[in-house]
Design a protein around this nucleic acid. Sequence first.
RNA 1: UGGGGUAUAGCCAAGCGGUAAGGCAACGGGUUUUGAUCCCGUCAUGCGUAGGUUCGAAUCCUUCUACCCCAGCCA
Length: 557
Amino acid sequence: MSETSKPGNFITQIIDKDNESGKHGGKVLTRFPPEPNGYLHIGHAKSICLNFGLAQRYNGQCNLRFDDTNPEKESVEYIESIKRDVEWLGFEWKDEPKFASDYFDQLFDFAVQLIQAGKAYACELNAEQMREYRGTLKEPGKNSPFRDRTVEENMAIFMDMKNGKYKDGEVVLRAKIDMASPNINMRDPIIYRVRHVHHHQTGDKWCVYPMYDFTHCLSDALENITHSVCTLEFQDHRPLYDWVLETLKTAHPQQIEFARLNLNYTVTSKRKLKQLVDEKHVHGWDDPRMPTISGLRRRGYTSLSIRNFCERIGVTKSDSVVDVGMLEHAIREDLDASANRVMVVLNPIKVTLTNYPADKEEIFIVGNHPKNEEAGTREVPFSKELYIDAADFSEVPPRKWKRLTLDGAVRLRGGYVITCDEAIKNEAGEVVELLCRYDEKTLGVNPEDYKPKGVIHWVSAKHAVDATVNLYDRLFVNEAPDANYEDKTFLDFINPDSLTVLTNAKVEPSLVNSDKGQGFQFEREGYFCRDLKEDGMVFNRTVTLRDSWAKIEAKGN
RNA sequence: UGGGGUAUAGCCAAGCGGUAAGGCAACGGGUUUUGAUCCCGUCAUGCGUAGGUUCGAAUCCUUCUACCCCAGCCA
């Protein structure tokens, strides 16, 4: 049954109808079929959530299949990263991961069947001639001079192709369909080519490799896939998909196309992502600024937030561009509920409490989460000298200022109310230290005769731990870096401030015991996570908190 | 008339002949020891255009328009 609280889409409607008519015997078997030629990105996450989600919804299953028919571009490193990413997203594929290359023998036999049925032929047109014979979008193509070879001749050549008697590019095997078809994919498409290269799975066994259009439909059929979900650009390939399966009389999965994900301020094309990595505009595929699954993970995105995001954007056939704000909302929502709060001073300025004993120390018990008691408490040490953020003090405060200022009082989060008496400056006129008084009657209670302006975070200087904090911002300053511009490429839109490294941050001591990858809310600053790779105190900003003060400030006071 | 698709708010998206869901964003207001969260409220007489059918149309028909994809021995 398709009983579920989750909203459906046009694909679930198709499946519901299939289930009513008993088309696939009520079974649902989907597949996620990446080519292992790069790392998975947020666009793949949409496809993964869709395919595995469909399987879950209908109590079916989903295969992970590597579409590895073009070995030159592929590698085992990519295969491993893809498995890791799919698993991390929280999905389980049916049985062992599958490879199109597992079917090379059967695919070869299918090609032989086509030849024997007079539906495929060996063609020795070179690439340039092939293009000429293909025709154009508006003009029909013309038949290859090799189109009417005998079955025997085609068989002999195909065997010679397989046996290495041809060099790369000398001959191909083509399906014999219709050179005048208005659909270019049907103009005798190439189904096998000669390529003397090592394959990461099959080694040197083969020097002929099947093309996508021949491989994909048959792999689906061999696995008894019921619904073969792919992106819109394959719509024109569906007639060929159906032709191959009908001609070979195999099982016949239904190809269904949906719109791929586009995100503004982001590029999601493997070619461009690879370029960012190769040209070192970022520090690798898992750079936290990358829209790759591994980049998002290192940035601090949770798999739940990505799944929620994919669910919310929906599945349709219309090209659309989703606002990255939606992604940011998804991670804020998850982390607000799940991340423990902690105090970290990003740009420290010293505060000395003139009326606090020099040798005194206190331990405050502070809640880890404002709405979840089960998150427990932690000990936060307090002493005479503290750090607060430079941005939390202003000598000449703007209107509506709710932070520290001369003669102003403010609550130290989880601690006392303090009042600032004096700002000490260096020769350059910059404030380097604040002399304040604390009100000993204000621990846990509000003062009776005056009202603190606001609440700021802090850390005890003596107990603070130094940390490096990577402040990440969006990688591109242009909403559509991917679009075609006359004189600019996406590289021209790279945000020069996409990464700001703070090396002087002061974190509260409890953070020393954090785990790599663990997410926190640095109170009043944003959500951060301990870096997955670095051993020391290195934190990455996942996303800022929503900031209504920034809006007020921007409007001018 | 090359073929294949898509058009609902700033963005995503429900809707499937009975009178425009929801989310994001934005904007007001309330609560708050995070300018966060949370809560309350506002936000399409309108569904790409122009006609038609109908008691009734975003939904059916016709016209036009805009945008996306296709001429790899890539997937």
